[in-house]
Each structure stands twice: as C-alpha cells, then as structure tokens.
Design a protein around this nucleic acid. Structure first.
Lengths: 235, 235
DNA sequence: TCCACGTTTCGGCAGCGGCCGAAACGTCAG
DNA sequence: CTGACGTTTCGGCCGCTGCCGAAACGTGGA
C-alpha cells in the first residue's frame, strides 16, 4: 500500500467488458439512453442500469433526465482522453477484440455524430473535400478554400450565415469506427442538414444511423467527385 | 461489436489491485525484481509471478533476466503515458488512496513525457511561455503567437517544418505530479530535443528522469524569463 | 384512470479469477 | 555436489461480481 491515486479501482471500472462497450459507444460524443447502451453492451437493461450507476458515481459519466429517458454522456474531456489513451495503447499492443455481436452495418456505414455526418460516409466526404481542394488543412485547423466556399454556396449553404456564428465552421472530428477524421463544425452540420432536406438520407429514429436511399447514395457519391467531372446534379 | 481495440481487457489488466500496485511502483522508472514487486503489491511471490507474466504477455512490461533475478520495467513511453493519464483521472474523480508523496525527487523535478518535458520544469516552462505571451491559450487550444514563433525560430526550431507535420504543434498535457499543464505536441518535443542537443539536460537511461546540468539549469531558467530582460544567451 | 414503456431495485445463481501452499526449476556460492 | 535463494508452475479453495428474472417506480399517452 503506497501513496497515490487509486488507479486500480478506476481501471477495474473501465475493465469490465459491458462497461467498456458502453464507454466506447459514448466516445462518439453523443448522449445515449440507458436502453441504447444496454444494446451496445449486449446486456439486459437491468444489468446496464447497474453499470451506468457505477460509472456515474465514479464521475466518468454524466446523466441527464429527460422524461422517462435517461441520457448518459462522457463526463468530460479528461475522461475521453483517458479512454483514448487506453485505446491507442490497446491497439499498439495488438489487442483487437473479435467479439461476436449484433452490431448493425448501417451504423458503421453512416451515422450522425452530434449533428454532422460520421462513419464511412463521413470520412469519405472529408477525404474527398480535402482531395478536391475544397477544404484546406493548415496548422490553424480546417478552412474552406475559395473554390470550396463557392461550391458550398452553390450547394445551397449560406456560408455568410455560418461565418457569422460563434461556432467554429470547420472542425475535424475523429471518427470512432474509422479512426480517421470527418467534418464537424457548423459546415458539417449544414451539409448533413442539406442531405436530409434533399431526401438523400434520413436519420434513424431509434439509433444514430443515417439511412441513405439508393438515389441519395448515388447523388452523395456524385457530390464527392472532383468538381471537374461532376455533372450539374447538385442544383 | 465490430472490431476495434480491446479496451476492456487492457483496463481489466491494469484494474487488479496487485497489478496496479506493481505498475505504480514501476512508474518511477526503475526496473524492479519480481520479489520486490511482490512486496510492493502485498502478495506472495508466486502470485506476483503470475501477474507479471500476464503483464509481460500483454506488452505492458519488459523483463530482463540477470542471473537468478528478473528485472521488470515499463515497456515503453506509451504505457507510462496511459498510466499517467489514468492516475490523473483517478485523482480528478477523487479516488485517492493516500497523499501524493514526493517519490523520486529527480522524476518530480524534470522528466520526459513521451518526447517532451514534464515535471516541475515542464510546468514552469509552460507557465512562462504563456505569461510571456509566446503561447496563447484560446478556445481552439494552444498556439504560438507571432512573437513566440519568432522566438522559437531564433532558438533554432524549424517552425515551418513543424507546421507541415500532421501532428499537432501545441498541446497542453496535464502533468501527473504537478496537476497542471505542460507543453506537448511537436513544439514541446522540438524544445526538449533542443535542450538535450545543447547539453542543458540529458535523459536518464533507466528512468524517464531528465538530469539538468548546473549550467543547463541556469540557461533554461534564463530562457524562461520575459524576452525584454533576456540577454542574448540563446543564439 | 389505466396501460405501455423505460428504468431501477432486489434476490439469487454461477463463473471467473485472484490467492496461497506445495513443489519444481535454475542460478550462485561454497 | 550440496544447500540457499529467487522464481515459476501446479492445484485447489474461496470470494467477488457480473448476470438475469421478477417486480417496483415514474413518466407519458390514450
């Protein structure tokens, strides 16, 4: 018995598979209900409830009561950072879980992270915008180029309005399943809103998945193509 | 659940009290024998042996055989970093087993955290750079000011090269022993490298401690002083 | 008011895993 | 070679805790 923080209790808390799954699910940043987290962890609601109570008690999660739902989220950046560090270390030491689990492919393909597009589609969009020169990555962060700005305006985004907001327009958000960045910020939100309003994709009500229609998927992919080859389908 | 790092297994490994005690004991940087670690953990040698085997197998510890002794040490900086993060989080969430004691004084004074300077010296440098206006703390994070940029260039840091990298240039990293931030990121790394190449400090080979020479310590402290009062010793 | 639903509490079961005693292995000293 | 010592392996015990079924609680809708 020495001095120092009780690292064991904390790590043991994170070390349970069900709790770790819940924490991982919450790493995307969105608050989830107890029932959703039970599904994520693959346990019954009553089991999940016990785990969540312990995580809240330990200060790792915050809970917000809305009606008969309880929304849980990561308590703060330091918790997220600790989890991220563990994830990186787990990856370096070659620990990849091969757990069987009923996780649907739709979430992986496209989901919303807060209010912007994440998942494979989100990462693909980010990559395409950068590759096309619509977004520039600098030391100050992310910004739309002049060409990109014109393109977004042509797509129906009110860039002047976005620039006037306090919220950062472009932010790179690390994608959980892809481990690569996708576009966050007010521009990311505006783009996803535009996809929805055009009927390209609809948010699943129960999950965070975004369900693209076939036509919407095709138009989305056209949107990602370099400006030169794009036909004028985005009017 | 799809693939992804097995955070649960890793955290569970750290989460056992006996193993956590051993890891904490090894955080000082020195290699310890299996018997010593058994004592640290408060378990019998045969129990400790099992734990150590698992930690080595998981890649958290390295073992070096010397005669009939086996010396165990932390496998690498990333492991130490993960443990530090957990320690900080455990402290923030109020999980303290006792008072945070001085432990190894040299480690507390100056050590390397990954590749940048931590400990009292690291925190002092961070405070000085912010106080002098060389670094600015904004909502977007940390960034060098124009004056700071010029100063780092004058100190021999290739700022253009740092800006070209994907790695964030400036990051505030919470210091374990000081509980206050120090400078991480590529700039933090470049600064520590500069200190070493100038002979101000040398990394201890067995531990993560940084040993300043008397002259180096004086020059380092001069470096921290406001630009106005600084003499041109940093050319 | 009644019912449906999300969530929590309680109780009991079962399994994992940490612990130690005993014993074997390897090294060093005499 | 023999004995001491550090360390590991084996076997078995035992406690912790994660799990679920059942039931209670609170909210929202009909």
């Amino acid at each position: 018995m020495k001095e120092g923080p009780d690292i064991a209790g904390l790590a043991a808390l994170i070390g349970d598979p069900a709790r770790a799954n819940m924490l991982s699910a919450l790493m995307a940043g969105k608050a989830l209900t107890a029932g959703e987290l039970a599904g994520e962890a693959g346990v019954t609601p009553q089991t999940a409830s016990g785990h969540l109570a312990r995580l809240v008690d330990a200060g790792l999660l915050l809970v917000e009561v809305q009606g008969r739902h309880r929304y849980y989220r990561i308590a703060g950046p330091d918790v997220a950072e600790a989890l991220e560090t563990l994830l990186v270390l787990a990856e370096r030491t070659g620990r990849v879980r091969a757990r069987p689990g009923p996780r649907d492919e739709a979430m992986r393909a496209a989901r919303r992270c807060y209010d912007h597009l994440a998942g494979t589609a989100g990462v693909a969009m980010f990559d395409a915008l950068v590759a096309n020169g619509d977004l520039t990555v600098g030391s100050d962060g992310l910004a739309p180029s002049a060409a990109g700005r014109a393109r977004f305006v042509a797509f129906g985004i009110d860039m002047d309005e976005l620039e006037g907001r306090r919220r950062p327009m472009c932010r790179a958000c690390l994608d959980w399943s892809e481990r690569r960045p996708h576009l966050a910020g007010s521009l990311g939100a505006a783009l996803m809103a535009a996809f929805v309003s055009r009927g390209w994709a609809t948010p699943d009500r129960k999950t965070r998945a975004m369900r693209f229609t076939d036509k919407g998927r095709a138009e989305f992919e056209a949107f990602l193509r370099p400006a030169a080859r794009r036909h004028v389908a985005d009017g």
